[in-house]
Nucleic acid binder design. Structure first.
Length: 733
DNA sequence: GACCTGCTGCGGGATG
């Protein structure tokens, strides 16, 4: 290696020795490129590379060299979205750092206070921490923050894409910014990720207004093998007792999974926790019936840590093959080893998500990535919805796969005004500094280059005044802002540190063992039978005070409902879907039934003349077919609602309830929108209710809530463009 | 039909 690698020689001798001892043949491409960029610690860097292996080292080999060559003490702050990832990384880094005599400090909710106290006594080495724990540190140890981070050389943010666009991402930006300010200098930021489409957007996220150096590993193109199988669900006939019969396609899909997945490690994504339960149970029963050892394990966010660890351990060990039926809990970089194939039941939530999932397969040299898609459609019988007639689930899956193959996926949503997280950060800064003036707060959080830049001083003052009326803050006669009585209560409870909201939950306990949790909104009663953790149970007792549901093993049971909202579809996906409907080409990866679905959808598209028609009369409603993404369709629905219509975004378009004037009245409204100016948000959303989505939205003045909502959920500009284009086309007829 | 993530400080009692 020594002869070919120039970066290798830049590393500290002790690190070079460690690399030899590991028997690593040479530095990976990303490592080779990253070392000279990171070593001087004078700029931000983003490392985008296909596999998890190698990225951590690409950041840490030069960062640790910098630490070793520096003047004694120094600190690297690694920030992870998952505790599990911190535990994995601790195992890997501690081995390396032991040889270098550098301490590694894991810090999250499960780490004992003793470890944290020892770190704080001498804050040197590598700190592995979550955003929430960092928030707690700033809140509770405000006076010592400058000292703790005085010698911080780098922030390393793992799984950068998992933060972009969310409340947590905005919080993370704010935390790094506040630490920069406390330390009195710009601490270089290193972002690690596999899925970053537009690198300039990711760069803007890593540091607002920044432009980091980029390391993109041109990974050798892994071969992708794809098969999409169609399944026809017979029309349900109500049984004598009025109950819906069980659907038959899950049993058929499970039978196929059983046949093709046994003997190897795989991941299957059925898109919801409920379906994870359903499929795990069917597959477990199949193994039992065939008298073979069980190879199918459940994994989702409502299962207890113990049960999830069992599944992760089953995937990691090499003795027996194992397949996880899972949600996106297994999408991020937890170490589960390579898998042979990925199953996707129903359309994935996004192309980015599909890409991340498929990235778990084909990670060994010379092995392809294998994707099996399962598409279910209702059998045809008379009056079915447009979604059924156009086979939209199947077509959406095919559209997403075709975009994936082209290398496209949804860009990260860096924009968006996160007033909710601004409230959290205001309260946190007040805690950190024991009070602050309005001007100090605005300069720290909202000035150009700050995480909340773009918020005007007028909006900021409006927010502060409103927080005063909510008793979250109060102003001393000197002008200094402090916590109000309610603010004090919130900040002093540990739930304050997370920027995102969460449901209240019941624990499900069987014989003293916690199986997992269910949201309280999904009330269960004694005697009910449920399917949970892949097994069936009878509810014995519901303890409201202890928020616990006691269950015992029993036969029979249906999977419970969990809470959750739908994913959001991007305009590009809808447009690709329409291209598929218009086209003739039949992708080679479709099986006979999936081909049939595609043919039926194309026939229907032609029969309804959807290439030329914008409206479809559906009786009580008019369907406006925009073929735009959800954000534009929702904005269009808002325009109609403001005109007194009942309207909602529905798949590829907007469903508008007819009024007395029928279809023509809807078209007239559309014609008016085309020539009117785009309305402002206060007008458009004047009557809108229930806009609160994020944790602190309840404390926002109406105008700011409307702005926050619109910035994240509505694309008014795209809706207006569509309306204008359609209006012109109609005028030309 | 529809995801996921995370969490302090302190006091009391047991243990080495």
């Amino acid at each position: 290696m020594a002869g070919e690698s120039s970066s290798f020689h830049l590393l500290d001798e002790r690190i070079q020795r460690f690399i030899w001892q590991q028997g690593w043949e040479d530095l990976r491409e990303a490592q080779e490129l990253a070392v000279p960029l990171i070593l001087p610690a004078d700029q931000d860097v983003i490392i985008a590379a296909a596999t998890a292996a190698g990225k951590t080292e690409a950041a840490f080999l030069p960062a640790l060299t910098n630490l070793l060559h520096g003047s004694g003490e120094g600190l690297i702050v690694y920030i992870s979205p998952l505790k599990a990832l911190i535990n994995d990384q601790f195992g890997r880094l501690d081995r390396l750092c032991e040889a270098l005599d550098i301490k590694v400090w894991p810090w999250h909710g499960d780490i004992t206070s003793g470890v944290k106290a020892r770190f704080l006594k001498k804050p040197e080495g590598v700190l592995l921490i979550t955003p929430e724990s960092l928030e707690a540190m700033l809140c509770n140890r405000g006076t010592s923050i400058a000292a703790v981070f005085k010698e911080a050389r780098f922030f390393v943010v793992d799984e950068l894409h998992a933060f972009i666009g969310s409340e947590r991402g905005k919080q993370l930006q704010s935390l790094m910014h506040r630490i920069d300010r406390a330390a009195g200098r710009r601490i270089p930021r290193i972002g690690l990720s596999a899925t970053l489409g537009d690198m300039s957007l990711a760069g803007k996220f890593l540091r607002p207004g920044g432009a980091p150096a980029l390391v993109e590993s041109t990974s050798s193109g892994v071969e992708i093998k794809i098969l999409v199988k169609g399944y026809e669900e017979p029309t349900a006939i109500k049984q004598v007792d009025g109950q819906e019969p069980d659907p038959v396609s899950p049993a058929q899909i499970a039978a196929h999974l059983f046949k093709v997945l046994r003997g190897s490690n795989n991941l299957v994504f059925p898109n919801s926790r409920r379906e994870v339960e359903r499929y795990t149970h069917i597959l477990n029963e199949l193994c039992e019936r065939e008298q073979v050892p069980n190879e199918f394990w459940p994994h989702h966010g409502s299962l207890s840590k113990e049960i999830r660890s069992e599944t992760e351990a089953a995937l990691k060990q090499k003795e027996r093959p194992a397949t996880a039926i899972c949600t996106n809990t297994l999408e991020l970089g937890i170490d589960i080893g390579a898998v042979k194939s990925v199953g996707q039941i129903g359309p994935p939530p996004s192309v980015a998500s599909l890409r991340q999932r498929l990235g778990r397969s084909g990670r060994r040299e010379g092995e392809p990535a294998i994707l099996r898609g399962y598409a279910v459609e209702d059998a045809r019988s008379g009056l079915t919805s447009l979604k059924d007639r156009l086979r939209l689930d199947t077509l959406q899956m095919v559209a997403m796969i075709s975009l994936l193959l082209e290398g496209w996926f949804e860009p990260p949503q860096v924009a968006g005004t996160h007033f909710s997280t601004l409230i959290q950060q205001l309260l946190s800064v007040i805690a950190q500094n024991g009070g602050a003036s309005a001007k100090e707060l605005f300069t720290l959080l909202c000035a150009p280059g700050s995480p909340f830049a773009g918020i005007t001083s007028g909006e900021f003052l409006e927010l502060l005044r409103h927080l005063g009326t909510k008793e979250l803050i109060l102003q001393e006669s000197s002008g200094v802002l402090l916590h109000g009585p309610l603010g004090e209560k919130f900040v002093n409870h540990y739930t304050f540190y997370a920027a995102f909201a969460s449901d209240e939950e019941f624990r499900i306990v069987a014989g003293g063992r916690t199986l997992g949790t269910l949201p309280v909104s999904q009330m269960l009663t004694a005697g009910q039978r449920i399917l949970f953790a892949g097994k069936t149970w009878r509810v014995e007792e519901v303890d409201d005070a202890q928020k616990t549901i006691f269950v015992t093993r029993a036969s029979g049971g249906v999977p419970p409902l969990f809470s959750g909202g739908p994913g959001r579809t991007h305009t590009r996906v809808r447009q690709r879907l329409r291209e598929l409907l218009r086209g003739q080409e039949v992708p080679a990866f479709l099986d006979v039934t999936a081909r049939k679905f595609l043919r039926e959808a194309r026939d229907e598209y032609e029969r309804l003349d959807l290439d030329n028609k914008v409206t479809l009369d559906q009786g009580n409603e008019v369907m406006l077919l925009t073929w735009l993404g959800d954000a534009a369709n929702e904005a269009l629905a808002c325009l109609f609602m403001r005109r007194g219509f009942t309207a909602m975004a529905a798949g590829p378009g907007v469903e508008v309830h007819k009024k007395a004037g029928g279809v023509q009245e809807v078209l007239d409204a559309l014609g008016d929108f085309a020539v009117e100016d785009v309305p402002d948000l206060d007008f458009l959303l004047a009557d809108a209710k229930n806009l609160a989505r994020e944790k602190w939205d309840w404390a926002l003045p109406d105008g700011l809530l409307r702005k926050a909502y619109a910035s994240q959920y509505l694309d008014l500009a795209e809706a207006a463009d569509w309306v204008k284009a359609v209006g012109q086309a109609q005028a030309g007829l």
